[in-house]
Each structure stands twice: as structure tokens, then as C-alpha cells.
Design a protein around this nucleic acid. Structure first.
Length: 501
DNA sequence: GCCA
DNA sequence: CAGTACG
DNA sequence: TGGCCGATACTG
């Protein structure tokens, strides 16, 4: 392979297969530290075919931090560099302008870095509390009526090419958004104000995908969601390059300790504060605290592993195991991995499964059996749900949940796994809910509410009466597919990868 | 912190 | 019930 | 000034 020049204008390296690349630690390093992404050449083929940039994740050749990629089949390699300009030209005539965007999240939360540098090591990625922060709103000209419909009903368009061109640090405005993302993390965490966090998340991702560099706050005037307060902050950032308020917060040692504690699965603002007040300062300290509940204990036990993201190739293997066992136990079962995996992400924080059975009966007791079997084969190691809640015990919904840890034979890390079993009538709702992302879910629920429904992960319920017993005695509007649910809401169907809002 |  | 988690 | 998703689900 010819020597590649991977200078700034080069954003993508396309290859027919991973064999050449995987032997090159250099490539992995390059991708990690530069804007370059290594993709199978089908990515550009499909992009041209679709007339828009396809999400890169399913095409990625380099998946960090795994040994499984070695099992990928080899093929001949021809590499080509594609300058972003060329790509734009190829695609623009068909789909209109596209931007490269970056999410400072996902791979390493902004605050996570700060924290880790302050703490020394450990907390690298933050845990995705409230869902992973893969907010991103890629927006093209409304290519068809979907854009209009979405605008009309949701006040926004779907991110057309989803997270087109993902973590490539291409945002021209990281000087601003790094700070906004840090505010998001702080409010979501220590400052314990999810609503503000949401605002910062929205503004940051919005600015991240601008195709020009912001040099004056007035350029953001027409961007909605930015109010007085945010504007003033952005002005300060533009003027001084930093935000005093943030500096002060980050200089506070208590903040970093709380942030560290909250990076443990099962520890939120209250518990973190409580532990801090008891004088604890390190994770080792926490391990000595006997009052911690089951979830945080598991969080501590598997702390380092849980922090690791799951490369997509490994997630594929995890899915095979669970689906395989489920089918063996229950022929005809519906089982699939959902979450960010289903949305096409290159890596996932955890792996979630939604399971059901078309016979309308086998879902009862399914989870217990499945978990038992997965434990037998030493796939599942630890988990919640132990609370003996038999086949039919839970509420009126008959939904059964498992949250725990699993590991592939020979794999390096334990992984967070969630399994949900639904009765068949609720299956599409469970699927929709657990595919997310969280922002998408909030939006469609908000929309449902406006239309006089309540939407949750097991049904779409007409709102009856006022205040009282809204759902008691009410049946869900039946929907056999996710598509039907969205149609009932007056929305066009969105593919999973189009739900990365 | 933004918006109705 | 509060706290935390899930998308 | 109140709402911001879910009558979420699980733990203790």
C-alpha cells in the first residue's frame, strides 16, 4: 500500500477489507488521534446509491480496543484517500449540503477527560446517565415530505444521515462546544439538573454541526434553543476562550470527587454527595462502605470494565450468543439487540436485548430460564433482577427485566447487559423504547401527549378523564410494528439509524 | 435554561 | 418512598 | 410561572 498522507483535508480512508489495517497499530492510533476514519469502501458506494452520507459506523474497519476484529475475514485491500471536498461534490448534487460533525461525547466525555486528568487515572469515559449522549442533529434540506412532517409535528427534522461522519473531530466549533459539553456533564451529574443539561446538550450538538466557525455570538441569533443566558456564556467564551464559572467549578476538588463517584454504575448525585460527606474520596474508600446497594457494588466490582465501550464487532458476537440461546430455548422467539447497537453505532456503552414470543404465552418465565441458561454457560456473571419475581409477578404488564454483566468466552472485559422480555402485544413498543435514543423517545412521547395519548414502552394509551386513573382499565391501541406506532402519531417511519437525535 |  | 437506571 | 418522558422499572 502506498504511503498515505493523512493531512487535514483527508477525512476518510476507504479499503476493501480490514486485513491490511488491522495489522497496523498505526492506523488505529491515527484514527484515535486525528480526524481520519477507516471505512470499508462500501460506505461510499452506499452513500452514492442512497444519495446521502451513510452513517459510518457499520462500515468502520477499525474498532478500537478489541481482539475480535482479528476474526473478521480478510480481503484484498486497496486504499484510497477521499478529501472531504470531493466527497461533498459527489454527494451534494443529490442530497444537498452535508456537514461533518463531531460529538465530543461518546468516545470520551469532555468532563471525563478533565476529571481523569485531575484524578490521575480511572474515569475516562463518563457513564451514559440518562442514555448515552449521542445527541446529534444532522439536518439536510428536507429531501421529501418527511422533513416537513417532522418539522410540523416535532418542531425539528430528523437527523437525516443520522450521525453521518461521527467522531471525526471535525466540528469547527469545539472551542465553544467543549465547554458547553462540560456544562452538560456537570449539570447532568454533580449539579443534578437534567433539564439544564438537556439544554446544553442540544445547543452544543447544534453548534457542533455548523459548517462554519463561529466567531461572533450574533451568528447564533436565529438558532433556537439559545437564550439570553447561553448567549452571554458564548460571548464570554469567544472573548476569553474560557468560561469563568466552569473554571471555578472544575477547580473545586469536591466536584471531581463527586464526578468520580458518579461514574460508578448505581451511584447518582445523592449517593455521591452522601459518600463525600462521610469523608470518602476514592473508589477504594467506597469499596469499604457496606451500606452501598447491589447496583453500586456491582458498579465498583466491574468499574474498569464497565467504563470500556463495546466495539461493534464484539456487540455482534454478544448478540449471537443471546439470540442463539433464546432460540434454542424457545423456537420462534423474537430476540434482538437494540439500543445504540441497533442504531448503528460503532461502539456501545452496553448491550440491550428486547425479547418476545409470537405465541402470546411463552414470554412468561422466559427471562428466568434464559438468564439461568446464560449463567450456566458462564456468559452472564452477575446481575440485578435476582428479586424473585416469577413469570407473572410484575405489574399488569408482564414485562420482565434483567440488568447485569456478561462476558464472551476469552474476551477481555465484562459488559453491561440488559434484557427485557415483553408479551407480544407490547413487543413493538418495547422495541421502539429500547432502541431510543433518549431524545428521540422524549420527542415522540411529547408528540403523543399533544395528540392525547400516553406512550411508554408497553403501549400507546388514549388519555381519558382528567387527572385520575388515566390508564386503569384502558387498553393500548394495538400496533404490530414500530412503523404502526409512528404512523398513529402521524410520523413517517424512521430507521433505527435515523433515531440518533 | 428555554419556551409556551 | 427516594434514588438510580434504561432508551 | 410551570413543565421539561415514562402512571418507566428495580432496590432497599
Amino acid at each position: 500500500m502506498p504511503t498515505l498522507s493523512l493531512e487535514p483535508p483527508v477525512t476518510h480512508v476507504l479499503a476493501s477489507g480490514p486485513d491490511r489495517l488491522r495489522s497496523s497499530a498505526k492506523a488505529e492510533d491515527l484514527e484515535r488521534h486525528s480526524c481520519v476514519m477507516f471505512l470499508r469502501y462500501e460506505w461510499i458506494e452506499d452513500s452514492l446509491k442512497e444519495g446521502k452520507l451513510m452513517p459510518p459506523d457499520p462500515y468502520r474497519l477499525i474498532v478500537h480496543n478489541t481482539s475480535i476484529e482479528k476474526s473478521l475475514t480478510s480481503s484484498t485491500t486497496t486504499t484510497a484517500t477521499v478529501a472531504v471536498g470531493c466527497l461533498q461534490m459527489l454527494i451534494a448534487p443529490i442530497a444537498g449540503p452535508q456537514k461533518l460533525n463531531h460529538k465530543g461525547k461518546e468516545e470520551s466525555g469532555a468532563l471525563g477527560e478533565v476529571v481523569s486528568s485531575m484524578i490521575g487515572k480511572e474515569g475516562k469515559q463518563k457513564k451514559g446517565r440518562g442514555g448515552e449522549s449521542d445527541s446529534e442533529e444532522e439536518r439536510t434540506k428536507e429531501e421529501d415530505c418527511r422533513g416537513d412532517i417532522l418539522t410540523r409535528y416535532l418542531g425539528t427534522t430528523a437527523p437525516a444521515a443520522a450521525d453521518a461522519l461521527e467522531p471525526c473531530s471535525t466540528s469547527l466549533n469545539t472551542h465553544i462546544t467543549r465547554i458547553l459539553w462540560e456544562l452538560h456533564d456537570l449539570y447532568e451529574g454533580v449539579l443534578d439538573d437534567g433539564n439544564r443539561a438537556l439544554i446544553y446538550r442540544k445547543v452544543a450538538s447544534e453548534i457542533d454541526k455548523l459548517s462554519y466557525k463561529v466567531t461572533s455570538a450574533s451568528q447564533l441569533d436565529k438558532m433556537e434553543g439559545i437564550g439570553q443566558s447561553t448567549r452571554v456564556k458564548i460571548k464570554e467564551i469567544l472573548r476569553t476562550g474560557k468560561l469563568e464559572m466552569l473554571e471555578v467549578l472544575l477547580a473545586n476538588p469536591k466536584v471531581s470527587v463527586l464526578q468520580l463517584f458518579m461514574s460508578v454504575w448505581g451511584i447518582g448525585p445523592k449517593t455521591a454527595t452522601e459518600m463525600y460527606n462521610r469523608g470518602y474520596r476514592t473508589l477504594e474508600d467506597l469499596k469499604r462502605e457496606s451500606s452501598l446497594e447491589r447496583m453500586p457494588r456491582l458498579g465498583l466490582k466491574y468499574y474498569a470494565d464497565i467504563l470500556q465501550r463495546i466495539p461493534r464487532v464484539e456487540a455482534v458476537e454478544l448478540e449471537k450468543v443471546v439470540v442463539g440461546v433464546a432460540k434454542e430455548l424457545y423456537p420462534g422467539v423474537l430476540a434482538q439487540a437494540t439500543g445504540s447497537f441497533r442504531r448503528g453505532k460503532a461502539s456501545c456503552g452496553d448491550i440491550d436485548f428486547v425479547i418476545s414470543h409470537p405465541d402470546g404465552n411463552s414470554h412468561r418465565g422466559l427471562l428466568a430460564k434464559l438468564v439461568a441458561r446464560l449463567t450456566d454457560i458462564q456468559f452472564i456473571s452477575d446481575g440485578l433482577q435476582d428479586r424473585s419475581r416469577g413469570p407473572q409477578a410484575p405489574g399488569h404488564y408482564e414485562v420482565d427485566t434483567y440488568m447485569g454483566l456478561c462476558k464472551l468466552q476469552g474476551a477481555r472485559h465484562y459488559r453491561r447487559i440488559d434484557i427485557k422480555v415483553y408479551p407480544i402485544r407490547a413487543h413493538p413498543f418495547g422495541l421502539l423504547h429500547f432502541t431510543g435514543n433518549d431524545i428521540f423517545n422524549r420527542r415522540i412521547r411529547e408528540l403523543a401527549k399533544k395528540k392525547g395519548y400516553k406512550l411508554n414502552d408497553h403501549g400507546l394509551f388514549p388519555t381519558v378523564g382528567e387527572g385520575q386513573n388515566i390508564r386503569s382499565g384502558t387498553e393500548s391501541i394495538p400496533c404490530a410494528t414500530e412503523r404502526e406506532i409512528l404512523e398513529k402519531l402521524g410520523m413517517p417511519y424512521l430507521e433505527p439509524h435515523e433515531r440518533n437525535w
